[in-house]
Computed example of a mutant assay.
Amino acid sequence: MPLPRNRETTLLDVYSILQSAAATAYENTDNQTGPNRKVAMGVVHLIELAQLRMDAMLNELSVSANG
């Protein structure tokens, strides 16, 4: 059974927000040095972890929707 349209749209919106946050964090990292760069890279890694979890959830939902 496919996801209800509003739930699917919400998940895709969250994924898009994570992509934007990652791009912003990467840009910020490029402009930092020393400890500030390490903090910025920490943010990048947290966003990447969230993206991986979102990918896994979307894949599980897709598999269960397709039977």
Rank of each mutant, 00 (worst) to 15 (best):
N66S: 14
R37C: 09
Y26S: 03
L18Q: 08
Q51G: 11
N59Q: 15
L58M: 15
T29P: 00
G42K: 06
R37W: 03
S20L: 12
S16C: 12
T10P: 01
M1H: 08
R5H: 06
A50W: 00
Y15G: 02
M54F: 04
L61S: 04
G67W: 08
T9N: 03
S64N: 13
R7I: 08
D55V: 05
T29R: 11
G34R: 05
L46Q: 13
G42R: 00
A50V: 05
P4D: 03
A56Q: 09
N31G: 12
D30Y: 09
S16K: 14
M54Y: 03
G34D: 07
Q51T: 05
A25M: 03
N36C: 03
G42E: 00
G67E: 10
A21H: 08
G67R: 15
V14S: 04
R5F: 07
L18I: 06
M41H: 11
P35Y: 01
N31F: 02
V43S: 03
S62I: 06
N31I: 03
S62K: 15
L11M: 05
R53P: 04
T24N: 11
S62Y: 11
L58N: 08
S62N: 12
V43M: 07
N31P: 00
A40H: 01
D13E: 15
V14F: 10
R53L: 14
L58H: 04
N59S: 05
T10Y: 11
T24A: 15
N6T: 05
S16I: 06
R7C: 01
L12I: 01
V43I: 12
A25H: 04
N66I: 06
T33K: 04
R7A: 08
N59T: 13
Q19D: 15
M57Y: 11
N31C: 10
K38A: 14
R53Y: 13
Q32N: 15
D13Q: 07
L12N: 08
E27P: 00
D13L: 14
Y26G: 01
L3K: 01
Q19G: 12
S64W: 08
E48L: 02
R5W: 10
E8L: 05
V43F: 09
T9Q: 12
A40C: 04
P2G: 04
D13R: 13
S62T: 13
L52Q: 14
S16V: 02
L49G: 12
R37D: 08
A40G: 11
T29E: 11
L61Q: 06
P2D: 03
Y26A: 10
A65F: 05
R5A: 10
L18H: 04
A21Y: 12
N36G: 12
N59D: 09
V14E: 14
I17G: 02
A25L: 05
T10N: 07
H45G: 00
H45A: 08
E27I: 07
R37K: 15
A56K: 09
M41S: 11
E8R: 09
I47L: 11
L12Q: 10
E60L: 14
V43G: 02
I17Q: 13
R37F: 05
M54P: 01
N36M: 12
T10M: 10
R53D: 13
R53F: 10
E48T: 13
L18C: 01
L11Y: 06
S20R: 14
M41V: 09
T9H: 02
M1L: 07
L52A: 14
D30H: 08
N31E: 13
A25V: 01
V14H: 02
P4Q: 02
E48F: 07
G67Y: 09
